[in-house]
Amino acid sequence: MKVLIADDHRLIIEGVKIKLAELDPNVDAVVAMNLEELDQAIAAHADELDLALVDIAMPGTQGHQHVAKLREQAPALPVIVLSGSEDADLMRALIDLGVLGFIPKAYSPDVMLSAIRLVLAGGIYIPPLLLANAQAQGWQPLETATTGGPTHSVDALRNLLTERQIDVMRLLSQGKPNKLIARDLGISEGTVKIHLAAIFRALNVRNRVEAVVASRKLQGL
């Protein structure tokens, strides 16, 4: 297993390596300690990586732009964010980008390992307190992996997609290309591609046509 660990604290990096060895004694860690090294690591290893663990705050980064860029460069790569913050708005923004896990650094190494196992199995990890906060505000992200094909119940499909992804699917169902979807939603084409990659993964489909067929089972689309 090859894992990207992007963090500017050597102690965190070494601790993560130790826990990852419990999953795979032969884990190959690619380390990045700032934005430049992160860009270099993705350029050199994107097609080889099985997982990325990325700090939300590193030298050279601004907000979570580096995470958005990573998702655009490697949309199929599972990404887990490590953060010193437990801010619900930050968590929602990252999940909407297609991040599959959000682990506060205050949590134990064993919780981190369980979260990694869940993500590698195809699920998504959100801290319980943040999930409760988000759901109280009416936002329900994906909690578990999808295992079937494009045929899901309406309720299951609604739980698979975020509100922004549903917006993208609605426009996709109208036959609009990425450029028009981006214009209508006020986002970039790159962000549309990120959402589409997350939608394909959530619906277990391979392309836009299959995604539209699956989306017909969503109420309101």
Rank of each mutant, 00 (worst) to 15 (best):
residue 84 G to W: 13
residue 80 I to C: 03
residue 87 D to S: 14
residue 84 G to Q: 10
residue 139 W to K: 09
residue 107 Y to V: 11
residue 135 Q to F: 03
residue 68 A to H: 07
residue 70 L to H: 06
residue 83 S to I: 05
residue 145 A to F: 04
residue 146 T to P: 01
residue 122 G to F: 05
residue 122 G to E: 00
residue 103 I to T: 13
residue 60 G to I: 01
residue 130 L to W: 02
residue 142 L to G: 03
residue 94 L to T: 08
residue 70 L to Y: 14
residue 131 L to Q: 11
residue 140 Q to A: 11
residue 127 P to K: 03
residue 150 P to N: 08
residue 113 L to I: 00
residue 71 R to A: 10
residue 89 D to H: 12
residue 65 Q to W: 14
residue 148 G to F: 00
residue 85 S to G: 00
residue 96 D to Y: 02
residue 127 P to S: 04
residue 83 S to G: 10
residue 63 G to T: 05
residue 106 A to D: 06
residue 129 L to T: 13
residue 99 V to L: 08
residue 152 H to G: 09
residue 63 G to E: 05
residue 70 L to I: 13
residue 96 D to I: 00
residue 89 D to Q: 15
residue 75 P to T: 02
residue 152 H to E: 15
residue 118 L to M: 05
residue 139 W to A: 12
residue 124 I to A: 14
residue 132 A to V: 08
residue 75 P to Y: 09
residue 102 F to D: 02
residue 95 I to R: 07
residue 88 A to I: 07
residue 101 G to R: 05
residue 90 L to H: 07
residue 67 V to T: 02
residue 61 T to F: 11
residue 139 W to Y: 15
residue 137 Q to G: 10
residue 69 K to R: 14
residue 101 G to L: 11
residue 132 A to C: 02
residue 130 L to I: 14
residue 138 G to D: 01
residue 100 L to M: 07
residue 132 A to D: 03
residue 76 A to V: 10
residue 109 P to M: 06
residue 137 Q to W: 07
residue 129 L to W: 10
residue 127 P to Q: 06
residue 143 E to F: 06
residue 150 P to L: 07
residue 127 P to I: 00
residue 61 T to C: 13
residue 74 A to V: 10
residue 61 T to A: 12
residue 113 L to D: 09
residue 108 S to Q: 06
residue 133 N to Q: 08
residue 123 G to W: 09
residue 125 Y to D: 09
residue 73 Q to S: 13
